[in-house]
Amino acid sequence: KKKIKIYIENENGEKKTIEIEVEGDIDEIAKELAKKYNVKIVKIEP
C-alpha cells in the first residue's frame, strides 16, 4: 500500500487535499474518485 495525496477542485473552485492509502493503479483510483465526487483532479503526489 502507498500513501498518496490527491489535490482536487470542486465545481465551486474550492480546493482540497485528500490523503489516502491505495493499492494498485493510482491513476485509475483517482479517476474513480473524481467521477464519484464530481471533482477535478489537480495533482497527485506519491
Rank of each mutant, 00 (worst) to 15 (best):
V22P: 03
N10T: 15
N10D: 13
E21P: 03
I4K: 01
I6H: 00
I20T: 03
I29D: 01
K15G: 09
V22K: 02
E45Q: 06
E9F: 07
E21T: 08
A30M: 15
V39N: 03
I44T: 02
P46E: 14
D25E: 07
K15P: 08
G13F: 04
K43W: 15
E19N: 05
I18G: 00
K2T: 12
N12G: 07
Y37A: 03
K2F: 15
K2L: 15
P46T: 13
N38H: 10
K43S: 11
V39F: 15
L33P: 00
V39G: 14
E23M: 11
A30Q: 04
E14P: 02
D27A: 10
K40R: 08
I20R: 02
Y37W: 14
G24A: 05
G24W: 04
D25H: 05
K1C: 12
I18L: 13
E19W: 08
T17S: 07
I6N: 00
P46L: 15
K31T: 08
K43H: 09
N12W: 14
K3A: 07
I18W: 15
I44N: 01
L33E: 00
K35F: 07
E9R: 08
I18R: 01
K35W: 08
K35P: 01
K43V: 08
N38V: 03
I18C: 11
E23P: 03
I26G: 04
E9P: 01
I18P: 00
K40L: 09
K35I: 09
K2P: 07
K36M: 09
K1V: 10
I8Y: 15
I41K: 01
G24D: 04
G24I: 02
I8H: 02
I4T: 03
I44F: 05
I26V: 11
Y37E: 03
D25T: 06
N38W: 05
K1P: 10
Y37H: 05
Y37N: 03
Y7I: 09
I44R: 01
Y37M: 11
I29L: 11
A30I: 15
G13K: 04
I20G: 00
K15F: 14
V42C: 12
Y7K: 02
D25I: 04
I4Y: 15
E23F: 12
I26C: 05
E23H: 10
K36R: 12
I20Y: 05
N12F: 13
D27H: 10
A30D: 01
I26R: 02
E23G: 06
N38A: 07
E21V: 08
K2N: 09
I8E: 00
E14S: 07
E19A: 05
E14G: 07
V39H: 05
N12A: 12
A34N: 02
Y7Q: 05
Y37P: 02
L33N: 00
V22H: 07
E45R: 04
E32V: 11
E11M: 12
E21G: 03
I6S: 00
T17D: 03
K5D: 01
I29Q: 04
D27E: 11
K1F: 14
I44W: 12
V22S: 07
P46Y: 15
D27T: 10
P46D: 12
K43Y: 12
I8S: 02
N38D: 03
K43L: 11
I44K: 01
I41Q: 01
I6A: 03
L33G: 00
I20L: 13
V42S: 03
I18E: 01
T17P: 01
K43Q: 07
E28Q: 12
N38Q: 07
I4A: 06
A34E: 08
K1T: 09
I41S: 02
Y37I: 03
G24K: 03
K5W: 13
I4P: 00
N10V: 07
E21N: 07
Y37Q: 03
K3V: 08
K5M: 09
P46V: 15
A30V: 15
V22Y: 13
L33M: 07
E19I: 13
I18M: 10
I4D: 00
T17Q: 05
N38Y: 06
Y7H: 08
I20V: 09
G24C: 06
L33D: 00
D25Y: 04
A34H: 04
T17L: 07
K31S: 11
V39K: 02
N12M: 12
E11Q: 13
I41R: 01
E9A: 06
E28L: 12
V39Y: 15
N10E: 10
I41A: 02
D25R: 05
N12Y: 14
D25A: 05
N10F: 15
K16H: 14
V42A: 03
E45W: 10
K16V: 08
D27C: 14
D25S: 09
L33I: 13
I20N: 00
T17F: 10
I18K: 01
E14I: 09
P46N: 11
I29V: 09
K3P: 05
E28M: 10
I41F: 05
K35L: 10
K2Y: 15
K5P: 00
E21Y: 14
K2A: 11
E45P: 02
G24E: 03
P46S: 13
E45G: 04
E19K: 05
A30Y: 06
Y7V: 09
V22Q: 05
K40G: 03
K31E: 08
T17K: 04
E21R: 05
E21L: 09
K40M: 09
E11S: 12
K35A: 07
K1D: 02
K15E: 11
I4L: 11
I4F: 15
E32P: 00
N12L: 13
I41G: 01
K2Q: 13
E45N: 03
L33F: 14
E28G: 06
I29C: 10
K16E: 09
I29F: 15
Y7S: 05
T17I: 14
I8P: 00
P46H: 13
V39D: 01
K16P: 01
E32L: 15
N12R: 12
G24Q: 02
K43R: 12
K2C: 13
E9Q: 10
I6P: 00
K3C: 10
A34V: 06
V42P: 00
K31P: 01
E11P: 11
E28H: 08
K15D: 05
I6E: 00
K35D: 04
E19S: 07
G24F: 03
E23T: 11
E28R: 11
V42M: 07
K15A: 12
D25V: 04
D25W: 05
K31M: 09
D27K: 06
K43F: 12
E9G: 02
I29M: 08
G13P: 00
I20P: 00
E11T: 10
I6Q: 00
E11L: 11
N10I: 07
V42H: 04
E11W: 15
K15T: 15
A30W: 08
E28S: 09
A34L: 06
I29G: 01
E9D: 02
Y37C: 05
G13Q: 04
E11A: 13
L33A: 01
A34S: 09
G13S: 03
E45V: 11
V42W: 06
K40A: 06
I20A: 05
V39P: 01
E21S: 08
K31C: 09
D27Q: 09
L33H: 01
I4R: 03
K31F: 09
E21H: 07
E19G: 01
V39E: 01
V39T: 04
K35H: 05
K5V: 12
E32I: 12
E21F: 13
V22G: 06
K36V: 05
K40D: 03
E19Q: 07
G24M: 03
E19H: 09
K3D: 01
I20H: 01
I26K: 01
I44D: 01
G24N: 03
I4N: 01
K5E: 02
E28N: 07
E45D: 04
N38K: 12
Y37K: 02
V39A: 14
P46M: 15
D27I: 10
I44Q: 01
E23S: 11
I41N: 01
N12Q: 12
L33T: 01
K40C: 11
E11K: 13
E19L: 09
Y37V: 02
E32N: 10
K15R: 13
A34K: 07
D27G: 09
I26T: 04
E11I: 10
E32F: 14
D27N: 11
I6K: 00
E28W: 09
K5Y: 10
I4G: 02
K1I: 12
V22A: 11
I6V: 10
I4V: 13
N12K: 12
I20M: 14
V39W: 15
E28T: 11
E9Y: 07
A30P: 01
K3G: 05
E45M: 08
V22T: 10
V39S: 13
K35S: 06
E19T: 12
A30G: 03
E32H: 10
K5S: 07
E45C: 13
N38I: 02
E45A: 05
I20W: 07
K16W: 15
V42F: 05
I8K: 00
K2V: 14
K1Q: 07
T17V: 14
D25C: 06
K16I: 12
K35T: 06
G13T: 01
G24P: 01
E23C: 14
K15W: 09
K43E: 05
K5C: 09
E14R: 07
Y37L: 13
E19R: 04
K43G: 10
G13V: 00
K3W: 15
I44E: 02
K16M: 14
K40P: 03
I44S: 02
N38P: 02
D27R: 09
E9V: 14
I18Y: 14
I41M: 03
K5G: 00
N12V: 10
N12H: 13
T17G: 03
I29N: 02
I41E: 01
P46W: 15
E32A: 14
E11N: 11
P46F: 15
V42N: 04
E45T: 07
K36P: 00
V42Y: 06
K35E: 06
E14L: 10
K15L: 14
I29Y: 14
E14T: 09
K16Q: 12
